Computed example of a mutant assay.
Amino acid sequence: MRHHIVFFALGFIMMLGFSACNSSNNEGTAFQDWDSNQDELLDNNEFDNAFTNSPYFDNWNQDGDQYISENEFYQSYAAMIDENEDGNISNEEWDAAVNSYFSGYDFKVENLMEEWDQNSDGNLSKEEITSSLAESDYFDEWDSDGDEQLSEKEFAKGTFSTWDTDGDGLVQAEEYADWYDSGF
C-alpha cells in the first residue's frame, strides 16, 4: 500500500512540477503544439519530440551536466511544491497541493506527510522529501539503463508514463489538460 501511495504522491508532485514549469517558462504552449498530427492524441514519438524541445529537462537538470541525478530529481520535486520558496513544505502547501490534485481519490496522502516529517515539526524539508522519496524505487524505475542518472530521453519516457494516467500508451488532450490547466 505504501508503494501505491508513493506513486500517487509522486505523480501529483510531477503534475505540480510541470505546472510550475509551464506557468513560468512555457506560457502559450497548447496541446495542439505538441500534437503534430492533430489527432487529439500524443503518442510516445510526438510527446518525446515536443518534450525534448521544451524547457522541462533543463529546469530539473540543476547542474547543467546533461543528466538528472537522483538528488536533483527528488530536490526538484520538493522545490515544485514549495510555493513560498522557503525550503520547507508547510501543512498549508501540502494541503493545497493535495486538494488540487487528489480530490476524489480514495486514499489519504495527508498521512504521508506525517510519515515523511521525520522531525515532527509540521513541515517537510527538502531533505525529508528527498530522503523519503529515495526509499522508493521511483528514480530507479525511470533510470532504464541503470547508470544512476536520467538522460533527457529517460526523463521524457518517465514523464510520458506519468501523464498517461489511464495507461493506454497515449496522452489524450484531457490528460494533458490535467497538468497544464491545473493552475496550482
Rank of each mutant, 00 (worst) to 15 (best):
V109T: 15
D147Q: 02
D164R: 08
G104M: 08
E46D: 15
N49I: 11
A79W: 07
E141S: 13
D95G: 07
D178E: 04
S120F: 00
M14A: 12
S131W: 02
Y67L: 13
F31T: 04
Y105V: 11
L124N: 04
L150D: 00
F18S: 01
I89M: 05
F102V: 05
T165R: 09
Q32R: 15
A173P: 01
Y101H: 14
W163D: 00
S100E: 15
E40H: 12
D95P: 02
D48Y: 08
V98L: 13
W34L: 14
D178V: 00
G122V: 02
I68R: 05
Q32C: 10
F18G: 00
E128G: 04
I81V: 12
N84R: 08
N119M: 01
F57K: 03
D86F: 09
G158A: 02
G87R: 11
N44Y: 12
E46T: 13
D86L: 01
E154I: 02
I89Y: 02
S36K: 13
D140R: 14
A20I: 10
N123T: 12
D106P: 13
S69W: 05
N123W: 05
N99M: 15
D65P: 05
S132T: 08
L150P: 00
G11M: 06
S69T: 13
W116G: 02
Q149N: 05
D58C: 06
F18Y: 15
M113S: 09
N119I: 00
K153I: 03
G104C: 05
F7Q: 06
Q62C: 09
S136V: 03
A96N: 10
D117C: 01
I13L: 10
N26P: 02
G17W: 00
N53E: 12
S132A: 15
F18E: 04
N22I: 07
Q66R: 14
G183A: 08
F31Y: 03
L124S: 03
D164I: 04
S24M: 05
N45M: 07
Y74H: 06
F160W: 07
H3M: 04
N88E: 12
S144T: 14
D65E: 11
D117N: 03
G64Q: 12
P55F: 06
Y176C: 00
A156M: 02
L112S: 09
S36T: 14
E85A: 09
D181I: 04
Q38E: 15
D140W: 03
S131H: 11
E40M: 09
M113A: 13
F31L: 05
N123D: 07
L16T: 14
S23Y: 10
F57C: 06
W142Y: 11
S132C: 05
F12R: 13
D43I: 10
E93K: 09
F73T: 07
S24D: 08
D65C: 07
G28Q: 08
N91H: 13
G122T: 05
G87S: 07
L112N: 04
A9D: 00
N25R: 14
F7L: 08
A20K: 12
N25S: 07
N25D: 06
M113H: 10
N25G: 12
D86A: 03
M15D: 14
Q149F: 01
F102M: 14
A30D: 13
A50F: 08
G146T: 09
S19V: 04
G104Q: 06
